[in-house]
Design a protein around this nucleic acid. Sequence first.
DNA 1: GTCTATAAGCAGATAGAC
DNA 2: GTCTATCTGCTTATAGAC
Lengths: 190, 190
Amino acid sequence: MARPPSIDEADLLDLLVSVFREKGFDGTAIGDLSAVSGLQRASLYHRFPDGKEQMADVVLAKVGKRFLWILEPMREEGDVAKGVEETARRLGDFYGAGALSCVLDTMTLAGTPEKIREHARALARTWIDAMAEASRRAGRPADEATRAAKDAFLRIEGALVLARVTGDTEVFAETVALLPGILLPGPEEG
Amino acid sequence: MARPPSIDEADLLDLLVSVFREKGFDGTAIGDLSAVSGLQRASLYHRFPDGKEQMADVVLAKVGKRFLWILEPMREEGDVAKGVEETARRLGDFYGAGALSCVLDTMTLAGTPEKIREHARALARTWIDAMAEASRRAGRPADEATRAAKDAFLRIEGALVLARVTGDTEVFAETVALLPGILLPGPEEG
DNA sequence: GTCTATAAGCAGATAGAC
DNA sequence: GTCTATCTGCTTATAGAC
């Protein structure tokens, strides 16, 4: 008498992401995930037998896939500048124009299981590496490109903290718009 | 038969700060505070009858006092540039050269009581306002000064996230060293 | 002011019916 | 695959001895 799934796997993951990203690993209770998804706690354990840690892990995997799509223009577009612009647009959207938090911030607090923190770390490296690679493709020397990529990451994360703390999301919008300026070489260097 | 306090109030607060800043409100258990301080949980409740929320509140108050001292050179020093440099040094120290987290980040996650979040918000405003005021004193137009102050805040918070996620604390050191460059006008504008 | 002991509730996780 | 019911341990918080 197996019932049909009451919610699609992909939709469920989006909902789990929305909780974990705002509350972090420790702050997220299975009851929160139950409430947001409409599934009873036991149903969540049926889908994720290894419990909360697995739920957090699949959430990070889902975020990783989303990032693959976000970074794709910056990586594949023949015109690097255009690719960076499109990636910046997708980033702004992913972070709800500054209203949402970043799992890389909230899921790396002390108390989070090491496996989850390591997963988050890997995502951050992928993101930063992609930005550095785009910067090099655009003509920046390797060391400058690496610096620029870390600077871009730092500014986006910082703008999200500023938005969460003060409510000011404008700076985030400006920061995302500034991404090409951070990663690409100036007119005289290109 | 009142025993003498087994730990000084100020020392105790420093220890409570060290836990809350890394684990956030939700992630911090009274047991963690008990372990770090050597006091039993009941003893903590004796000192803070209103419980965990009061503990978090006095922690933020303590951080606020520390910030008053950190910001003092930037506010009082006749030579603004020298003042900003000294404040930057103190900031670097407060954040353990990038190894420590910021309560303004970790204590504003969803799930934190609104009163605590509001307290954190007030601290952030004080800090940003002080930087904007120093920037104006140094000769920047008001709107530029405000922008620069938000930019400085954003970069420091972002550098701390970068350090926590990737383990790279170098960028934080560079960011703090860059503070005068962010807040003060260039040589040609001064 | 500190402690031991304990209450009351919530968390993560499991068993088994349908 | 979902549900109700339950177990176990941890969390916040309190009572009362010293």
